[in-house]
Design a protein around this nucleic acid. Structure first.
Length: 160
DNA sequence: AGTCACTGATCGA
DNA sequence: TCGATCAGTGACT
């Protein structure tokens, strides 16, 4: 099992997005933390020379190109189920923490769902930013809600 | 036992 | 209306 690891950086005005690959699959994605009210407008610079960059670029354009293969996720069974559901939310749509919990057959586990979202190893690739509160508020994002707000805005959910 | 990226209810301004 | 506050909830450390 010679794991063929590879790091990929994508530079943006908010800092570098670092994607870690293993055997050609995405195993994690790290976004730099940004304050809730960034002064800097978001810009991204990449050559889109491979599938990862292409996907990330498309994401920030509000398009949903094919999601690159994601490595097997190492979380608890509950977390894996949450992450699987998240990955099925299409671009431009949102779900509430409670809807996810209900889909898992545990409507009262919304708090746990939120926990799992926060531990999502690959934001962007697993679209945890499309999960918002049932009151329509963003509530949180591991790398700062600025990302969440921007992504939803780009994907067509204006004014959240 | 304590921590949460929640939710629904309640209360005061 | 809109906020702050509170209790209840489940998974995880």
């Amino acid at each position: 099992m010679s794991d063929n690891r590879q790091l990929q950086k994508i530079s943006t005005s908010w800092g570098d997005i670092v994607v870690q690959m293993r055997d050609g699959k995405v195993s994690s994605c790290t976004l730099p933390y940004v304050d809730d009210t960034p002064t800097e407008p978001f810009t991204i610079s990449t050559t889109e020379k491979n599938a990862i960059e292409f996907f990330v670029c498309d994401t920030f354009r509000g398009r949903s190109s094919g999601v690159p293969p994601i490595a097997e996720l190492q979380g608890s069974s509950f977390q894996n189920m949450v992450w699987l559901l998240l990955s099925k939310i299409p671009s431009g749509e949102t779900k509430s923490y409670r809807e996810i919990a209900e889909a898992l057959g545990k409507p009262l586990a919304y708090r746990a769902v939120a926990n799992a979202c926060g531990k999502n190893p690959a934001p962007l690739f697993i679209p945890c930013h499309r999960v918002i509160g049932s009151d329509g508020k963003l509530h949180g994002f591991s790398a700062g809600t600025a990302w969440k707000r921007m992504l939803l805005d780009i994907e067509g959910k204006k004014g959240i």
